[in-house]
Design a protein around this nucleic acid. Structure first.
Lengths: 344, 344
DNA sequence: TTGAAAGCGCTAACAA
DNA sequence: TTGTTAGCGCTTTCAA
């Protein structure tokens, strides 16, 4: 209502009878010391005038904005939503703000967005990319420090971090094979832009390699729920349907579960399902999902530290996933919980 | 790697043999006209020097940052994640960036966050508040235009928008009563800080009022999955358990569904469940949920227009929800889809 | 059509 | 311990 013009440090200086430098020292708690009495007067003036520093002016002067960007393929995907939340929390502890950009898993959009943010003088950029590695390298160094998120191996030229996707996939598929006796596990995985098989695929494949078993079928589809749903429908139409499915994301698993249900099949009795991510909703699906859970909090904290910390960037930080056993693999009280289902 | 210092408009001016003003005219396409030949020279220089304007300097000069804040209680809640995505998309079309802040449904955190963002010279603030209305009013006018999101009635002092929550709740509960013949519907709703009953509660209540029926039981709990789960567990322990449940959020419904399943009850046969929000995952729950769906895209677009558009702020904009009928109320092919379940 | 220059609010080097 | 002041890079008025 009031404030026809916000007060500036000059107003405060005048009001307190000091110089603007002193105001600055008080506001920033340095770099010079200020006499307690003077400081008190300045603080009183700040309160009286309801002064708050102009962030843009400071940014112009210091070259730092207190803003960190996060670029993700799909913020509505529970995994990225959880990641964004964790990153925001970690940033808040540093007094920094989170700028979110969503690329809709589209390469062109990502190019535009990254170029855009590169021009913005953010203090750092956290990037979960869908661009092929080669192109990313050609991106050159944008103004700010960039950390790659959600990658599963060292990435030349950038600090990077992510889950041990191969290990996580191995563990959860191995569980299906060794504990539940499945001889074959179908893989539902997102379209990869890389020439090498994605880590989740490698982990899955290695389980069978190690046991000299033929790997199960591979279905490449989109990462979302629909992708999982379609992949499962396809498989259920086969003459010989798989007894177990490993999906590369929780959302795909959600789609698979729906397809199973529509087909009148029960999980885990008819088809076991396990997935990768372990977002909170996996505890609430029907049945609850056995997953390789990503340590989201830890990765977010590390990402923020890496992007904000001065000094030489660490190369690659890998995070172990956690195998969470629930009902969908056949482990926990699967029958006690389904008194309504027939003996089959 | 290179750029020991980014080039400035002065570098470009020198390179092109013009003044800095002309560079500015070219970059901003105004406010003065520039001779085509000159403009071409300037553009060449910009390319040659890989120049891009310093956003902070411009922000300082013009007082606008190209940043809009979004404050939500829980970005990991699928509804807010979807909202954030839609807002980001709408902002991107304006060339603006989204700053996200998460209050974890905590009033103290929200106070801090809003004060923080208020000092940041953002171009606008989109606020989904958990503060009591009175306090919000006392917040006074922050620097930027603030639009309240997710409110269901006019809010004195702020432009605001949100779903017709009362109408949506009414429609979905009415469906349960009129079409499926339930005489009583339990309400699972989030803790409200308001003295008046929340709109969703009013809509639910009015269904019974209109029919001179006693309303069903009310369970106040948290908005999340756990809240729904606990509320349902509680109800299932009652001597007479409800035949239908309306939850105030999809996440609560997810919790209810899990509790039902654990208790060996089937939905909708034993207990029907309907909810409010209609996030994408409700199509994938078991069974798929009948919901009052919020028009997220439309609300996000309106929010962005309202916060960015100059001129007098519109007062309150309300959006109708859409009744989406699926299986959880008992509507669609509920038996055709469950060939594995016994006749009961 | 273009150039010169003031000044946005702040920080920090330098002087006192 | 405090004051003075030069810019950070940009936009835009005013003059040419």
């Amino acid at each position: 209502m009031s404030a026809s013009r916000a007060s500036t440090r000059a107003d405060v200086a005048r009001h307190a009878g000091v110089s603007t430098a002193v105001v600055s020292y008080v506001v920033n708690d340095g770099p010079r010391r200020v006499a307690p009495a003077t400081a008190a007067r300045v603080r009183a003036a700040i309160l009286a005038l309801n002064y708050s520093p102009n962030v843009n002016a400071r940014a112009l002067r210091t070259g730092t904005t207190g803003l960190v960007g996060l670029v993700v393929p799909d913020i509505a995907n529970p995994f990225f939503a959880e990641l964004a939340q964790a990153v925001e929390l970690a940033l808040a502890e540093h007094g920094d703000l989170l700028v979110v950009a969503d690329t809709r898993t589209d390469q062109a959009t990502e190019r535009r967005v990254v170029a855009d943010l590169g021009r913005r003088q953010l203090d750092g950029l956290l990037l979960s990319t869908v661009l092929p590695p080669g192109e990313l390298r050609r991106l050159g160094q944008p103004g700010q420090r960039t950390v790659l998120l959600n990658v599963s191996s060292p990435f030349d030229g950038y600090p990077a971090l992510g889950p041990d996707a191969e290990g996580g996939a191995y563990a959860v598929v191995e569980h299906l094979v060794d504990v539940h006796g499945h001889r074959s596990v179908a893989l539902v995985i997102g379209q990869s832009s890389e020439p090498v098989p994605a880590p989740r695929e490698r982990g899955w494949g290695r389980v069978f390699q190690d046991r000299r078993l033929p790997p199960g079928p591979v279905l490449r589809t989109s990462f979302g729920r629909i992708g999982g749903y379609q992949a499962a429908r396809q498989m259920l139409a086969w003459r010989e349907r798989p007894t177990a499915i490993f999906t590369s994301s929780d959302e795909q698993a959600s789609g698979v579960l729906r397809a199973l249900r529509e087909a009148g099949l029960s999980c885990p009795e008819d088809v076991a399902v396990v997935s990768f991510d372990g977002t909170p909703e996996t505890e609430f699906t029907s049945p609850p999902l056995t997953v390789a859970r990503q340590p989201v909090q830890a990765m977010a904290a590390a990402a923020v530290t890496t992007v904000l910390e001065p000094g030489p960037a660490p190369g690659y930080q890998q995070f172990a996933t956690e195998l969470v056993l629930r009902e969908s693999c056949g482990c926990v009280g699967a029958d006690a919980r389904k008194p309504a289902s027939p003996p089959a």
